[in-house]
Amino acid sequence: MKLLEVLNARRSFGGLVAVDQVSFSVFSGQIKAMIGPNGAGKTTLFNIISGLLPTETGKILFKGKNIHRLKPFQIAHAGISRTFQNPSLFLKMSVLENVMVGRHSRTRWGFIGCGLRFPGQIREEKHIQEAALEQIAYVGLEHLADSPAGSLGFGQRRMVELARALATEPELLLLDEPASGLNPKETEDLGLLIRKIRDTGVTILLVEHDMSLVMDISDDVLVLHNGSVIAEGTPSAVQDDQKVISVYLGKGLAHAAPGEKSSMRLRRP
């Protein structure tokens, strides 16, 4: 089943067309990776899907419904959640509170109920807290639940953000460069965690520069270059695609300088 369908999305900034007539689909239960050199339009595409930027043409269909006119909070309610390249947390709030905010869209009580503190509301508050603690344990930060998010290291902040995204109970999770700034061991753990999340029924679309991670976990890879899709397919098919190789290594540079090649290599080590 097509969970997300992007049809002819386009976005320009002044004269620069960041995303140009991009179309692709994400199927339920997939891990799909979006790769491409810097400036290829990956993050812009994420911003379009999550509602931070409107697309100029085309449609974004989620479960068959057009979502490109919805506000970000409505898209979150619909079941799409995301993380950022640089973890975007509420720094003065504790880890637990950060994750509890993620449950906001899954609660029933409005402002009045909150003010009156109905027994049901207190019960729900407790339920939210338990669910949030569960998510925190899921990403392995239960010992830090009460620390302020601002006191955490980069890798841990990323995990808190992931826990918050999961707390919204998304059907589609967008991860923007989840491995950037992580060491190899952390990256490996992240790969396992992403698989585990997928196995609970969450579909994942990620942007990533770490090719070993991408090739390892994704079912499907989409390659963007200068705002357009240049290849789409299984990891192995994409690795052998001539256009992809020329974009990553330069035209006619199949045997590029060793340093450049190793930093941008497509094949698994």
């Binding site: 999550s50 950022f84 905010v101 003010g115 729900e124 707390a167």
Partner: peptide, 29 residues
């Protein structure tokens, strides 16, 4: 108490701390 211990209060603090993230967490800012 409202700002610390209730859903809406927490959402309000989240909005002031980081509106973009609050929006994506499903809060109508």
């Amino acid at each position: 108490i409202f700002l610390r211990y209730t859903l809406q209060g927490r959402a309000m603090r989240a909005c002031s701390s980081n509106p973009e993230a609050a929006m994506l967490a499903g809060i109508n800012i």
